[in-house]
Write a protein that binds this DNA or RNA. Structure first.
Lengths: 195, 195, 195, 195
DNA sequence: TATGAATGAGCGTTCATTCAT
DNA sequence: GATGAATGAACGCTCATTCAT
């Protein structure tokens, strides 16, 4: 438990530091200080600086997946499911803004790791959208004339870019929930099958 | 003229190197080698490494804006305009894939510069979408119940995330143009005012 | 203690390297090698290269001041005090020739630091002479028709230039102590009040 | 003539720049800009950066020697000669303050040139004092119990340190001429042979 | 001669990582 | 396990010098 605690503490510290400075501008000593451990201690829990980022991704997106999946469990209407997803995805900005920033910014950098690391968890996360839309298509609710993988990306892209807008703006016209609902509404209007 | 040439050559080299390695993993000597100039020569044209990235952004997005604006000039239908924008935005992936990668990845990093640099050109680029949607609203074509700034971001996010998908994938279900048209179609379905 | 040791070790190494090459020709790696530490270690003890020189000045002149002040403690005759000062000042050439060289050469460079660093310790050192002469004047031993600050500088200049002569020369007509006594004698003859 | 002119112009510019920044902090391009020539032009007149400093020394001290020697020509009394020398040496601070600064600061750095350059002209300059004192000794005016080379250095050191004081101070108790006279008076009192 | 763009060796400094305690 | 002092490879940037024009 001790070990798990310290691992957590370092990840939390890393989220804080990466959010503020970005991965490359962040120093191991910054993270160590924020985690209130010695620099060397970090290397008892992680192989290297990149490993912190990878672990952070896997664990935090894993959590997200769990939460979203849990919230979707009792829902049957794919349209409602898309709404839940949107509320959760944007909700992260309020619940854990720093994590949202880190995931948004660093997740993109396919070349952040010069080795060929692929973020499997992120793919899983996107697949939640994929499954929902597929389900809707099967129920005859959603259009089938647009590529499914593309729709998945469109929805995610819309949500994520809006999330970034929210983070960057000082003032906001709408609440984060309202934003999520509008995006979902627009998307549903777009993908709904019409007579 | 000589001077402008070398400036260009260095920017081109930087696009190549940043696309491959990312800004932080890129070395000045990598760029110099790619541009076939000496390391020191780079500093005759740019103040520092960050300045290369900033210049790259401003110039290349400036070019994009010019091209898109030019292509939109003769079009009157806002729906057609959105299509043109999509074709151009995604078209960049084919025309200049490396530039597309750099703009996508590095443009996000609000904290890449620890000073408070704001990418004015990028805002201008997004405003093209804003203006089109606004025009459509004024003509009674588009919904007005969704926040305009949000719609702008939704469209851009959808396009950009799809662009990223395209870049990352080895094989593709559709052509880049087809992808653009599908995204536009979906978005138009979503934002179209209905009786 | 370990820490203080290494600080000392680096200062000693810097004295050695600065004496041989001068501040600007000296390389951090030269000092590191002479101190038998890694280059980076130096930056655990000093902010930058200039800081090494500043610390060196402050500490070593501080030591000098302590030694001279200690030696003057029991003396009452200002004339004897001037002699003691001369013996100490020139004595440094024998005791720690490299330090003498560094202090002599680099101390002058008011523009060595492009920022406005003022060597407070050096002023303190000169003030020892000032106080002695002033005391002699009060006792009616020394002339009062020559500006006191000027006299201070004359004595110091004479001693220091002689010190430089000694360092530069391969062979010497007199011992360093004899030199000090002659300078003192000459100065005393010059400043003594006559009937 | 053209050539000599440009040579002069560069030397003058170097005096200006070295005085302000010091030899090592000075850039060739600073000197070129001050001389209103191109960087490359400097290398048509000087072998390298060190060569500028060496030439500057030789020429300017050569000028000094000429001037002082000229002024001493008609004087017979060695005491008067020492006074003339002092007035000239300190006079430089007023006539050409920047040159005075450069000569004072950079002349010391025996290790400024990592090769073994010896400043012959400076030795000549000091020998003027040597000759005067020797003459005074031969005329029975000056003490012979103090080493002649030492006396030379004492006088020079006193003058030069006073010159530095003058340069560094914002306000002055006395005129530069008065200062010179006081130093000379003190020195003469010190070296005068007494019954 | 004169220019100044181009060169590239060289150095101060940083910081991820190690390891003796 | 935990520490943090020490390491040293690595890199951005500078600037004396060169050379094509």
């Amino acid at each position: 438990m001790r070990t798990a605690d310290k691992h957590r503490k370092i990840i939390q510290a890393a989220i804080h530091v990466f959010a503020k400075k970005g991965f490359f501008n962040a120093r191991i000593s910054d993270i160590a200080k924020a985690a209130k451990v010695a620099d060397g201690t970090i290397y008892l829990y992680f192989n290297n600086k990149y490993d912190i980022l990878i672990s952070l991704f896997e664990e935090e997106i894993g959590n997200l997946i769990e939460q979203v999946t849990g919230a979707l469990q009792t829902i049957t209407d794919p349209r409602k499911k898309l709404e839940i997803f949107a509320l959760h995805h944007l909700g992260l900005v309020e619940e854990n803004r720093e994590l949202a920033e880190v995931l948004q910014v660093e997740i993109r950098q396919s070349n952040i790791f010069q080795n060929g690391y692929r973020n499997q968890k992120f793919a899983e996360y996107l697949d939640i959208i994929f499954a929902i839309i597929q389900e809707g298509q099967e129920q005859g609710l959603f259009r089938t004339d647009v590529n499914l993988n593309l729709m998945k990306r469109i929805y995610f892209g819309a949500l994520d870019e809006s999330s970034r807008l929210w983070i960057q703006s000082a003032e906001h016209d709408m609440s984060i929930a309202e934003t999520a609902l509008q995006i979902c509404d627009l998307f549903l209007s777009g993908i709904t099958r019409r007579a």
